[in-house]
Write a protein that binds this DNA or RNA. Structure first.
Lengths: 205, 205
DNA sequence: GCGTAATTGTCTAATTTTCAGACAATTTAA
DNA sequence: TTAAATTGTCTGAAAATTAGACAATTACGC
């Protein structure tokens, strides 16, 4: 039940990744630094890539579990929380960005962005009569925007704090969101039988 | 070989001690918060007091192992390092101060102060011809001063940062130390056969 | 005060985790 | 093209963690 060794291995790996690129880190390096047997590594992880996946998975879960309630109503605040890990490990993330197969990191970024945006959107739509479909469209829009920002940030060497980018986005969409939602809500009330947007995969119950 | 669970228990205990006094913390509280079996606690520690001792012991060791070289030449800097743990866990230390038997905490404080001062004194006396006995006297003097400061700090509720006190001490003794050492060094050179101070436990080789 | 619940410290025995050591197969580097 | 390093896998032993119970003590509500 106790997984402290596993956590220690993950933390050690991130430390190393903050020091040097992925291809200069061996499993032996990790376990030596961590003071743990090499077999213990393979007991928990199939290989380094499984380790990376696991770190991101846990990072996402821990984010959603401990999501601060006060951050749910501000997209900027939500993004600050969502990007905490990335901002605290810029070098490590940058090393991964350079070493990992295309799509690997993007998937993680999208995943964590989507979940953050989802919370924000649903909080904004609280009490409104908006269809799930409309909410999904809006969520996808903002998620893509966030993903774009994050990827640009990485490709530019992660030198500038992404919060700056996020500030721009936030300023741009904050006022818009409510009005979009209000309109959608009105539409839904007016013509409750027909969808207000492209019925590509409409969902009526 | 792996002691990550033990460390996790210790950290959990300190967290709890930063939240509430010692007599409101049960072993069950610790293991529950930590997500570990109660037997695991007793596997590592005889009881809470053994846990406390262990934390202090490890804290001292880890201090001495990772002692920053740049801090060895300044008493103030050394004290900053030595009191790091206490300053970062004011509440916990204060709770211990109120709950522990007299002498328990004092012993720890003296221990860590003595080792810090010892490094400082020996660094100052580097290359000088000073007897070990004289160095010990000086070390005891400064150690006692530090202990006094720390105890006063605790008895006053640890509200003021002890670095302020330490600043005072440092200002007071910094200039003095060198001259004392120089004089002692001269004495030792002049009358190399007789000790320069009380020969209580003289050590000549 | 009494009774009840909670906590402690100890014990067993099962299970899980970590270990040391070796191995062939690849990769790295000189 | 060797030699060294690394990987991934396997064994079996050792260590750590668990569940569960127990009597003894302590804390708390009434």
């Amino acid at each position: 039940m106790a997984k402290f060794t596993k956590i220690a291995i993950e933390k050690t790996f991130i430390d190393l990744l903050n020091e040097r690129p992925l291809d200069q880190i061996t499993v032996t390096d990790i376990v030596n630094r961590c003071g743990v047997n090499r077999n213990t590594f393979y007991y928990y992880f199939e290989d380094v890539y499984a380790l990376i996946d696991e770190i991101f998975r846990e990072q996402t879960n821990e984010l959603l579990d401990n999501y601060p309630v006060e951050s749910v109503n501000s997209l900027k605040s939500g993004f600050e929380v969502a990007t905490k890990f990335m901002r605290e490990n810029k070098t490590a993330i940058f090393h991964l960005y350079n070493s990992l197969n295309r799509g690997r990191l993007e998937e993680y970024v999208y995943d964590i962005a989507e979940k953050t945006v989802d919370r924000f959107i649903h909080a904004q739509a609280e009490g409104m009569n908006v269809s799930e479909h409309d909410l999904n469209v809006l969520t996808r829009l903002y998620t893509s925007a966030f993903e774009g920002v994050a990827l640009r940030w990485m490709s530019e060497g992660m030198s500038v704090d992404p919060i700056e980018y996020i500030n721009d986005i936030d300023r741009l969409i904050h006022g818009v969101t409510k009005s979009i939602l209000k309109n959608a809500s009105k539409d839904a009330a007016d013509t409750s039988s027909s969808d207000s947007s492209r019925p590509q995969n409409s969902k009526k119950n």
